[in-house]
Simulated scan of single mutants.
Amino acid sequence: MAGHLVQAHTQLYNVAVGTTTYKHGEYIQPVVGPRLSPVANFTTDEIRCRNTNGVSPKTPYLSVKAGVEFSVVWRHHNDSAEDNMVSPSHRGPCMIYLGKVETNPDDIKWFKIYELGFNKDTNKWCSDVARDNHGKVNVVIPKDIEDGKYLLRTDLLALHKANVVWGAQFYPNCVQLDITGSSNKFLDPPPEFVSFPGAYKSDDPGIFYDRRKDKGLNYVIPGPKVYPPTKPT
């Protein structure tokens, strides 16, 4: 039974910049304990990167240019077509954050650069969209930030048990990036900064949520607003 449950879970498997995909685990921080296990208690340091670290000294930084398309790929164990990123039952939103590296990881100011929840037109959650794309989600590294060393924090939230307090399952991972070529300033208004732990509360409507009852129709993705804000069309 335990093996079956693990197969339902997920990890950040690799990353890509444009058409260049890096080998499994490169630039991704190691996790504490089983690499596929979720974080249920988001008041602990593990909600940051599924470990208790700030920077991982043995993990190199990937040099990327601000403004480029960056891809993250969730998988179970390998990159085969048969290896799903997560069980179809573990449906929910995806979120991606950036946080400039600080000596004390508690001082990192995180801001959200991507989110995708439920699409009423397609009846799909972000997890469904990512599974259809072999676990891959694309995000643009914002141009209007500061150069420097960052942690890029990915988070997939499974809502199948979120109808009870502490039932939501978080799957965070962090990538170590050295970002250059930015404008070296934030837009006005600047990002909405949050801390991990601290950004999520047990009664947040996107965390304590009955997916089967609401069917995604009124779902609110937890955390701050996405930066930079989407321009009106």
Rank of each mutant, 00 (worst) to 15 (best):
M1V: 12
H4W: 00
V6H: 04
V6W: 06
Q7Y: 01
Q7R: 08
A8L: 09
H9T: 09
G18Q: 10
T20A: 06
T21E: 15
Y22R: 14
H24Y: 10
G25D: 14
Y27R: 07
L36V: 11
V39L: 15
F42M: 01
D45Y: 00
E46D: 07
T52N: 11
N53E: 10
S56N: 11
S63D: 13
K65H: 11
V73W: 10
H76E: 09
S80R: 04
E82T: 02
D83Q: 05
D83K: 00
S89E: 09
S89Y: 00
H90P: 01
C94M: 01
Y97P: 15
D106N: 08
I108N: 00
I108R: 05
K109G: 11
W110T: 09
N119F: 07
A130M: 15
R131P: 03
R131C: 08
H134R: 07
K136G: 06
I141C: 04
I141E: 04
P142F: 05
D144C: 04
E146N: 14
D147P: 08
R153H: 07
L159D: 14
H160F: 08
K161Q: 06
W166C: 06
W166Y: 12
P172W: 06
L177W: 03
S182P: 15
F186A: 13
E192Y: 06
E192D: 13
Y200T: 03
D210C: 09
R211D: 05
N218L: 07
P222L: 03
Y227K: 07
P228A: 02
P228G: 03
